[in-house]
Amino acid sequence: MNPAFDADSGRIRLDATAFEALCRVADPASRSAAALASDAAPLAALHGSGALVDGVAHEALRPSLAAVQQPIASLQLLVTGSAGYRLHQGWLSVVSAVLADVGDGSYDFAAIGTEFVPTLVARMTRLGLRPHLGPASVAVTETVLAALAAHEAGPRAEAAQTLVSATASTWPAWSAAAQGGDWRFWVADVTWPAPADTAASANTATSDDTATSDDTGHRLAVLDTGAGLLRVDGDDSGPRLVAVTPTEVWHLLSSILPADDEVAAAAPS
């Protein structure tokens, strides 16, 4: 696809190849000889869109590219459902950047004020008015959760069917909605480098594929239907689904970014 760049907003829609080439332009030290050769076509397209001017990123893109180059923390937001799979990425800094998965092989890349990251997640996950489920919890397995997050539709559908059965007696309306295909599973991970002395034992370290073993962070995982919201919680006995309200989810989202003392502790001395 040809990139579509809007200089007024600093937003650009592009594919993964063009995005990687754009990042290498902003960080010349990362450009290997092989990358230089393979970047020729995407760079030409980026020039054509106006995102590059004389080989340099347009000034409207510089805040978002700066966040990609030197993030304080990273955001990964996975949203799956009966209809699809999307993986959004963010780089959090004084000004942050987001690469939103449009779902057709293209992405929207833009800068965003860091304090708007919770709103961004809320919009991408369609957080909003839902019935408030009765307080209860239901056990779920890691296998089912992993299948809900699968790229392939088959495992997701099988896992959803498992949830339909597991929740039928506790939250019948929720179960019926999931049975009808009205479900979404989303996982927001914000990670940052753990302090050197705690990296090996960080008890909040996430287990996704992109976070390294030296990362720590905050995770929020939610199962959503039109009948209500369930949060993935866990303890020594394993993961559980717990009824939550949109207010409780927003409360958790508003504190998902690292506190100043958390990232200060992670900063190299």
Partner: peptide, 19 residues
């Protein structure tokens, strides 16, 4: 972005809360 809305007593009277 409206996030939540529920009926609840407010000031000791029937009411609602929005977030």
């Amino acid at each position: 972005l409206l996030l939540d809305l529920e009926r609840m007593p407010v000031g000791g009277h029937p009411g609602a809360r929005r977030l």
